[in-house]
Simulated assay, not measured.
Amino acid sequence: MEFPAWTAPTERPAGPPPAPLPPGERVGFAVVGLGRLSLEEILPAFGETKQAKLVALVSGTPDKAKAVAAQYGVSPEALYGYADFDGLKNNPAIQVVYVVTPNGLHKEYVVGAVRAGKHVLCEKPMATGSADAQAMVDAAKAANRTLMIAYRCQYEPYNRAVQKLVRGKTFGATGFIDAVNVQNMAAPDQWRFNKALAGGGALPDIGLYCLNGARFISGEEPVEISARIWSSANDPRFKEVEETVSFTLRFPSGLIANCLASYGLHESRRMGLHAPGAAIQFDNAFAYTGHRLSVAHRDGEAESVDERRLAAKNQFALEMDHMAECVRTGRVPRTPGEEGVQDHKLMEAIYRAASSGQVVKLDPIEKEDATRGPALSEG
């Protein structure tokens, strides 16, 4: 449906009204793992999807699963424990399995899901290393199932607007990116401090946003990496995983990305991008909400700072709808399994660089968006 314009051309266009698919035509999702991310972000986001719907839950806590199912209208017959995960194959309403377990369990449930004939959306980081990540890609290909990694920022409007500014060379070629994603963590007994379950500390959890963000915004792959890692002495949180990592990426165009991630610093999630004609400041770049984007540039005899305001959209709903579209149409996801494998290879290079104190050189990859599927539409 379309309405005639009701505001003047000087006003920001509202866009067409939402066009959700009828419930019977939406793609059914089973969410595996009912932790904080699922309960606080993913399950509520189904209320904003247009092509996806929640049809099943998998949890190791039956009472929690029953309570959540009652809240979201999931049938009691569509509740599964991890021991009866194979039962998903007998439920035709489930087309996509969304794996939201700790990282070290991703491979088990991704491989199990594709072998059960289901498509899979898997949370980032994809696994705990590139070998397991590649095995997940191979299993999905062998089963002829779609595997997508939940890089939510690549679907979020502000991140895509920054990508457009950089790739379009709106203010000339971007020469430097400064990316920071830090937060002060507690509860040393949580799984994120367990190396077997997490794969690492600040790097794979929140540093990955800086790494993937620089790759996604530029479309390039780094050819050199240097890094440093440090942790507070005698802090029980960091007996197995790193507290802080700083790494620098050099790209073929000459672009440098300087990145910082930490589990021991006050929360900040920002990105600064510098080009000959402008300085772009992107605050809350990796957050769920609250994005702010400003561009400082010359305006005649003055320095102008323009704030870009975009309509807020739920990035979890956007990524789930994209996955649903891929299932419905057969298209390759924008963030397929290969995107996750590449990030793991680069994180392993970051660890090598930090351990050796030497610059790690990588074979150049000339193709833009080499590990991504087709670009998203502007809508």
Rank of each mutant, 00 (worst) to 15 (best):
A8M: 13
P16R: 07
A19Y: 09
V31N: 03
L34M: 13
L34C: 05
R36P: 00
L37K: 07
L37H: 09
E48W: 00
E48K: 13
T49A: 07
K50N: 13
Y72D: 12
P76K: 09
Y80H: 08
A83N: 11
A83T: 12
A83E: 14
F85C: 06
G87Y: 06
V96C: 05
V96Y: 06
T101D: 04
G104W: 07
L105N: 08
H106N: 06
V111W: 00
A113I: 02
V114D: 01
V114L: 05
H119D: 12
P125V: 13
T128V: 09
A131E: 14
V137L: 04
D138S: 10
A139W: 08
A142F: 03
R145S: 04
T146K: 05
T146F: 08
Y155C: 08
E156H: 08
E156T: 03
Y158H: 10
A161P: 01
V162C: 14
R167Y: 02
G168H: 05
T170F: 02
G172A: 08
A173N: 08
G175K: 09
M185R: 10
P188H: 01
W191H: 11
K195H: 02
G201Y: 04
P204G: 00
P204D: 03
F216N: 00
G219E: 05
E224A: 15
S226P: 11
A227T: 02
R228G: 10
I229C: 13
S232H: 12
A233F: 04
D235R: 04
V241Y: 00
T248V: 12
L249W: 01
R250H: 02
R250S: 07
P252M: 02
S253Y: 01
I256W: 00
I256D: 00
A257D: 01
Y263F: 14
S268E: 11
R269I: 05
G272D: 07
H274E: 12
A275G: 03
A278F: 00
Q281T: 11
F286M: 12
Y288Q: 10
T289V: 14
S294G: 01
S294C: 14
S294F: 13
S304W: 06
R308A: 15
R308K: 15
F316R: 08
E319A: 11
E319G: 07
H322C: 09
M323L: 08
R328Q: 15
R331A: 14
P336Y: 07
E339N: 09
Q342H: 00
D343C: 06
L346I: 01
M347G: 04
A353Y: 01
A353C: 13
S355Y: 03
I365W: 01
K367Y: 02
D369Y: 04
A370S: 06
T371I: 02
T371N: 10
L376E: 09
